[in-house]
């Protein structure tokens, strides 16, 4: 039993780090542009499909395929920011509708191109580690380590570089940042595109572990938003923490409760938190 629990906890951490990396995008985008970008789910899905295409169809090495996917997703992210998102800055409801509208557009296009049949990548890194009876596939460990590295890297970049500090100060106080000479429009675009790149990376690595379908994005973005809200939007490490808490609680929860409802736990979490902390952990209301 304890092996099962520990195994589920480790699985929770791995899934949680995936939630965390998309939640990080949600947090950064919200801090800088004032909207919750649900379309990040679609970017994650795009990242997964592009990786699959580069790796399985074109036969590129996996690392290169992921890199290519991240670049491709960033380009799409840049275009959609210039064409769409920049007109919804600060308007939560319009931002929500536009980004959800984009999910359905992307999902439908991918569906039309690749059908609903789930796609599985040829094994990237076969084999598993057996630690005291707990079996962990190697690929999951690698993916988790990459996610953690990227999240901590982002944290360091935000706290140590000029651009990061500018973004940070803007999220705290937009007017003061503008007075200090921060080019706010460009900063917002950079952060929006970086968030889409994170989602693309999340999708690219997701593809190495699970089979992919056009609808994975909308499921994961809900989880990511839950994770972001759970730990408090605005905190980089919080996004990771929120993701891991959510991942573990789902995995442990499904040991004791019907696993069919694992998606519902996070939703109940979300509702409870938005109610208990009126205005949510976004903190823009008293």
């Amino acid at each position: 039993m304890s092996q099962l629990i520990i195994g589920q906890m480790l699985n929770g951490v791995i899934v949680g780090s995936l939630y965390g990396i998309i939640a990080l995008g949600v947090t950064l985008t919200f801090g800088l542009t004032g909207i919750v970008n649900f379309a990040l789910g679609a970017f994650m899905m795009l990242g997964a499909y592009t990786t699959w295409y580069f790796y399985d169809v074109l036969g590129l090495p996996y690392a290169l395929a992921v890199l290519g996917a991240v670049c491709a997703v960033s380009v799409v992210g840049y275009v959609s920011d210039r064409a769409l998102f920049q007109f919804t800055r600060g308007n939560l409801v319009n931002g929500l509708l536009v980004s959800i509208g984009m999910i359905s557009v992307f999902e439908a296009l991918v569906l039309a191109a690749f059908t609903t049949t789930p796609k599985d990548l040829t094994y990237v890194l076969p084999g598993a580690l057996n630690i005291a009876g707990i079996i962990l596939p190697k690929i999951k460990i690698v993916v988790c380590v990459v996610f953690l590295a990227v999240i901590f890297g982002t944290y360091l970049a935000l706290t140590r570089t000029w651009l990061g500090r500018a973004a940070f100060s803007y999220a705290q106080n937009p007017e003061a940042a503008a007075l200090m000479g921060v080019h706010t429009g460009r900063l917002q675009t950079i952060v929006v595109v970086y968030s889409t790149a994170l989602a693309g990376l999340g999708g690219g690595l997701y593809a190495s572990m699970y089979s992919i379908e056009p609808t994975i994005g909308s499921g994961y973005i809900l989880k990511a938003v839950e994770a972001a809200i759970l730990a408090g939007v605005g905190s980089v490490i919080g996004a990771l923490g929120g993701g891991i808490i959510l991942g573990i609680s789902e995995n442990i929860g499904s040991v004791f409760l019907p696993s069919a409802f694992r998606d519902a736990y996070g939703l109940v979490f979300l509702i409870a938190i938005l109610l208990v902390r009126p205005g949510g952990l976004f903190g823009d209301r008293p």
Binding site: N94, L97, V98, I100, G101, M102, S104, V105, A108, L111
Partner: peptide, 17 residues
């Protein structure tokens, strides 16, 4: 059916903006 969904989504985005 897929393109129909895509069309709806695009119309949604277009109308809002």
């Amino acid at each position: 059916a897929e393109l129909r969904i895509a069309l709806y989504g695009s119309i949604l985005v277009f109308v809002i903006l």
